[in-house]
Simulated assay, not measured.
Amino acid sequence: MDSWILWTLGGAFFQNLRSALQKRLKDDLGTLGSAFARFVYAWPLAVGYLLVSAEVTGVSVPDVQGVFLAYVVVGGAAQIMATVCLIEAFSHRNFAVATAYSKTDTVQAAVFGLILLGDALTALAVLGIAVSLVGVIAISLKRQQASWRQLLTGWLQPAALLGMAAGAGFAFSAVCYRAASLSLEPVGANVQAATTLAWVLGLQTLAMGAWLARRRPEQLRAVLASWRVSGWVGAAGMAASVGWFTAMTLENAAYVRALGQVELIFTLGASWLAFKERSTAVELLGIAALVAGIVILLLGTA
Score class of each variant (00 low, 15 high):
G48M: 14
Y49S: 15
L50H: 08
V52M: 13
S53F: 04
A54M: 03
A54H: 13
V56R: 10
T57A: 14
G58Y: 06
V59K: 03
D63W: 09
V64G: 12
Q65G: 15
G66R: 07
V67L: 15
V67Y: 04
L69C: 06
A70V: 15
A70D: 12
Y71V: 01
V73T: 12
V73K: 03
V73G: 08
A77H: 02
A78E: 00
A78Q: 04
A78R: 00
Q79W: 01
I80G: 05
T83Q: 14
V84D: 01
C85D: 07
L86A: 12
A89P: 10
A89Q: 02
S91A: 14
S91P: 07
R93P: 09
F95I: 02
A96C: 03
A96N: 11
V97M: 05
A98E: 06
T99C: 05
A100G: 07
A100R: 08
Y101E: 05
L116D: 00
L117D: 00
G118D: 01
G118A: 08
G118Y: 07
D119K: 12
A120V: 13
L121K: 03
T122F: 00
T122L: 02
A125Y: 04
A125P: 05
A125W: 04
V126K: 09
V126D: 04
V126Q: 11
G128N: 10
I129W: 00
A130V: 15
A130E: 04
S132T: 06
I137G: 01
I137H: 02
A138F: 00
S140V: 15
L141M: 03
